[in-house]
Amino acid sequence: MTGSTLDSAKTVLNHHPEEDVVVAHGVEHHDFRLLGIIVFLVAEGMIFLGLFMAYFTFRSVAPTWPPEGTPRLELLLPGINTAILVSSSFVIHNADTAIKKNDVKGLRLWFGITAAMGAIFLSGQLYEYFHLEFGLTTNLFASTFYVLTGFHGLHVLFGLMLILGVLWRSLKPDHYNTNSHFGVEAAEVYWHFVDVIWVILFLLLYIL
């Protein structure tokens, strides 16, 4: 057996420089929160993936799809809506660029525009709901349509609230700056996620 003596020089490593010491107990670690959000979005994505696969299977094994008597979906309004939501992803990215340059005004401007676009999307969605000729229980297609778009709509609503929350907080001086803007990043990542889901949803429900 060897190595029965401890190298005391090595154990000094036990004492870490101050900056390494973990932040106080009970406080979330700032660096990890974005990773946490991304990991959580994997789970969110799996709910949608599960629902998409269910939709795909319903569609594959149904005798006719959409079931007979289902009116054709209007494409114009949802198309415009899609364009708005997709472009909002680019808009919100400007906010991120702005805050990285410590430009809080820019952050507010771009987040404001994104919030408006999100609100327009949601109103468009509601308008479509009220003008559709089928209801939630009309047939299997109608049910999947409402549940998928509705569940996505809830996510848009939540994303919108995140954005408004960030806007509200940005009113406090120096709440967000170049070094600390987790809220901005979280809202942006979430918004991109909602956007990607919508594109798949749109292709699945309206185009295919």
Binding site: G45, M46, L51, L136, T137, N139, V147
Partner: peptide, 23 residues
């Protein structure tokens, strides 16, 4: 990865149960 898919199934099942959809 797996739990969310169960959640999806539960959402659809609850719609069938409460609202009368036919998933």
């Amino acid at each position: 990865i797996a739990t969310p898919v169960l959640a999806g199934a539960m959402i659809l099942l609850s719609f069938d149960l409460m609202v009368g959809t036919n998933f």
